[in-house]
Write a protein that binds this DNA or RNA. Structure first.
Lengths: 117, 117
DNA sequence: CATGTATATGAATATATGTTCATATACTAA
DNA sequence: TTAGTATATGAACATATATTCATATACATG
């Protein structure tokens, strides 16, 4: 029983080179975090609405048909990832998107879905 | 105690209109699924490698420093989402990306990470 | 056929995550 | 201050998910 697989389609030196091209692990982690935020349908809805309008929590709850608490929890996640910004007006807090890439990512993915499913 | 929140920054008819602009729930679900695939660092590594090279499972395992079993499990997910295609050569199976949008999504997100973190 | 290699997969486990409920906080107005 | 409104948050719970281990499958070779 050999210790190393005999496949080795690619020689060791080239494997090393390919491996080095990978973005560093912090970047990969951040990317994963970023996509994870988009990986939940309820957050996607919030993101979509916020990509078009500045909205208060209560209206977001009505639009997404979620409870206010659930919306606040999800908004916290968006906030922590700096995807949103907010302003206070009295007791009301208005959220909006903080970044142009967000909608861009959304749209590229949408193209994919429409083509491949 | 009122039954409905008094906030209503936006009148009911307009809320309805905004709500109707949201892609249908199947599309939102698919988008969420799509992003969820990208939401795991180990899958991101596989996707990145495959965006540049056609690779066999064993080499993917070496490159990503994962066990062969874990790689196969993740490749199954990529396959089910039709992000990859594969061809067999003897006992070896070579994987590659199936879609151009994938790398595009990856790159847009990378821009975001580099700007906002 | 039997052996070996590359990959796939089911089950078990540990961890992560989203929602709900109850409650806290921050602000407004009387 | 007291009551009311909008939002935030901690804890508990249920569900999802990634990994590992053991094993199965598919193919090649002798």
């Amino acid at each position: 029983m050999k210790k190393q697989c005999a496949c080795k389609s690619i020689p060791a030196e080239e494997l090393k080179r390919i491996k080095d091209e990978l973005p560093d692990s912090d970047t990969i982690e951040s990317l994963g975090e970023f996509f994870k935020v988009f990986g939940d349908p309820t957050r996607l809805k919030l993101i979509y609405f916020l990509s078009q309008y500045e909205l208060c929590v209560a209206d977001l709850a009505r639009l997404s048909e979620m409870e206010q608490s659930a919306v606040s929890h999800q908004l916290k996640i968006l906030r922590l990832h700096r995807l949103t910004k907010q302003r206070r007006d009295g007791t009301t807090i208005y959220y909006s998107l903080n970044d142009n890439h967000v909608r861009e990512v959304f749209d590229v993915a949408l193209e994919h879905i429409e083509e491949i499913g």
